[in-house]
């Protein structure tokens, strides 16, 4: 892991079909959501685009998916997002997208994100 990367987790921490939220630094303002769809990991800021500045999406720790695991869901107002693209497919932020976060995977399976992600929500708000 290079100096400008922050480790979030190990690949095996996100089972197939699951999503989890990780703070990139202990005092970061927003989680990064990592979701495993068909063995492929996708990551987005935990920040629903419905309101300016974004708002946290889970209803309980790591509760980022709808009950079928088909979509990422914002439990503020029920928006649903495509897991592969982050696009809102239903709900109050139709036409907007989640902010995608690029993931790096080390040979040992460590998953990390660019360090600037830790300050991201602070700059947006």
């Amino acid at each position: 892991m290079s100096a400008n990367q922050l480790r979030l987790c190990h690949r095996d921490d996100i089972p197939e079909g699951a999503a989890r939220g990780f703070l990139p630094l202990p005092d970061a303002p927003r989680n990064v959501i990592v979701v495993n769809r068909g063995g492929q990991l996708h990551a987005y800021m935990d920040s629903c685009p419905h309101y300016r500045g974004g708002t946290p999406m889970a209803w309980r720790k790591d509760a980022y998916l709808d009950s079928e695991g088909a979509h990422l869901a914002c439990h503020a107002h029920g928006a649903l997002f495509d897991i592969e693209t982050g696009a809102c497919v239903s709900g109050p932020c139709l036409g907007r997208k989640l902010t995608r976060v690029p993931l790096s995977e080390a040979p040992d399976g460590s998953i990390s994100v660019p360090a600037q992600v830790a300050g991201r929500a602070a700059r947006e708000s």
Binding site: M57, W59, R60, A63, C74, H75, A76, H77, G78
Partner: peptide, 9 residues
């Protein structure tokens, strides 16, 4: 206010 699985606060 809190998020909820009912899709409302």
């Amino acid at each position: 206010y809190f998020n909820s699985p009912l899709g409302v606060h």
